[in-house]
Simulated assay, not measured.
Amino acid sequence: MNLSDLTLIQDIARHGSFAAVARRREVDPSSIGRLVAAVEAELGFRLFARTTRRMELTEAGGLYLARIAPLTEELDRAAEESRAMQSEPRGTLRLSASATFGQKFIVPRLASFRRTYPEVAIEGLFTDSNVDLVADRIDLAIRLAPAIQGDCIAAKLMDTHYRVVAAPDYLREAPPLARPEDIAHHRAILFPYRDYRSRWIFRDANGTVTEQQVCGNLVLSPAGAIRDAVLAGLGPALLPEWLIEDDLANSALCSCIEGWDVTATSSGTAAWLIYPNRSYLPAKVRAMIGFLRGSIHKEA
């Protein structure tokens, strides 16, 4: 028996006839009779005593309806509240991002988001491990990659660009670091992912590609730890601009090998918005997606 069966029985009891309910539902009265008969057969007792002139609830039917009334009211309330979550941002938003991106890019924006959407609670899971969106009940994830594979919806949040950087004190004592081949004379600070710790790819203004092997004896994660090590003068590193833009502006770090675009992958990378399904996307998720995109647009 489903909820529609229960509400049908309640409608019949409320209006007192099959015909009245049939008119309201714009169906044939005989179909109402067949549905009631099927419900009574499933329950094992008669809900309505009916003659050619009148219809009344049986004693068992009255008891049954009295017991199911709170249940159907609660189900209606649950459906109403759930529909409200689809139209108004509210509830708990579980958000995932890489550790450093979450701390550097997401956390500073949360105060503004909460002022705009005070009914949305946020649970941030910031980790460099790829979480399972469904198993970990993640509403929205942000991943940094050239492209996104898998059974999920992906939309680009922003392109990400990288630079080879080093601390001024390090550069004063180290060999030159002006051209891609110069990296061979340095021990770089490396990220543990395979592509990032083996070779960096440089492209000049004409599109010429130069691939350089990198080596180093310091491998760190997350990216924020690499930044701290570079600031401490432990060597050069390949870091995203969104992480080091303030350090470059205040000269805490220097951009090296100028005039070349550099990546650790064969194509450019981006920050991607990832969510499990496009259908019935909750308002809280739509709100965060719009907020993050709007925030980037204002800064551009």
Rank of each mutant, 00 (worst) to 15 (best):
G224L: 08
D28E: 03
E74N: 01
K284C: 07
R179H: 04
T208A: 09
L75K: 03
T210W: 10
L177E: 04
R199P: 08
I148S: 10
L65H: 01
A167D: 01
S221G: 08
S96E: 06
E56F: 07
I289Q: 13
Y170T: 06
R23L: 06
F291H: 10
T269S: 15
T127P: 10
D246M: 04
Y170C: 02
R137I: 05
W260C: 01
E299R: 14
E80Q: 14
G233S: 07
G102Y: 03
A154M: 07
L190F: 13
G16Q: 04
I138S: 01
L133K: 02
A66T: 04
L35E: 06
A271T: 01
S221P: 04
A205H: 15
A69K: 00
F113P: 06
S129Y: 11
P180D: 03
A99N: 01
P175F: 07
L57I: 03
Y280D: 15
D195F: 15
L133Y: 12
S255W: 00
N206R: 14
E299I: 10
A249G: 08
P108K: 02
L281M: 09
K156A: 11
V209H: 01
R187A: 12
I257G: 11
R194F: 13
P29L: 03
E181W: 10
L218W: 06
W200C: 09
E88A: 06
G150S: 02
A79Q: 14
I257N: 12
G62M: 00
R227N: 07
L93K: 00
R90G: 10
L47M: 03
V131S: 04
S82E: 15
T263F: 13
T263A: 15
M288Q: 05
Q212F: 07
W260S: 13
W242A: 03
L57Y: 00
E245I: 09
R23C: 07
N206P: 00
P222R: 04
F18A: 09
A41Q: 11
D5N: 12
F101E: 08
T92F: 02
T51I: 00
Y193I: 14
V36Q: 02
R137N: 13
E73Q: 11
I9Y: 05
L243T: 08
A166W: 09
D139M: 11
L190A: 09
V27N: 04
P29W: 02
A271F: 01
H161V: 06
R14D: 09
V120D: 14
Q213G: 10
D132I: 00
R24A: 14
W272M: 03
R179G: 00
K284M: 10
Y162N: 05
L71P: 09
V39P: 05
A188K: 12
A283T: 10
L190M: 15
I9S: 04
S112W: 03
A155F: 07
R90Y: 10
V209K: 11
E56D: 07
L238N: 12
S17W: 00
T269L: 13
F48L: 08
T58F: 12
A225Y: 06
G235H: 04
L239D: 07
K156M: 11
R197A: 15
A229G: 02
E241W: 14
L95Q: 05
F191E: 12
I201Y: 02
I9L: 15
D139A: 10
A167L: 00
L171W: 02
F113L: 09
D151F: 03
S198P: 08
A121G: 04
Q103H: 13
R199V: 05
S87Q: 10
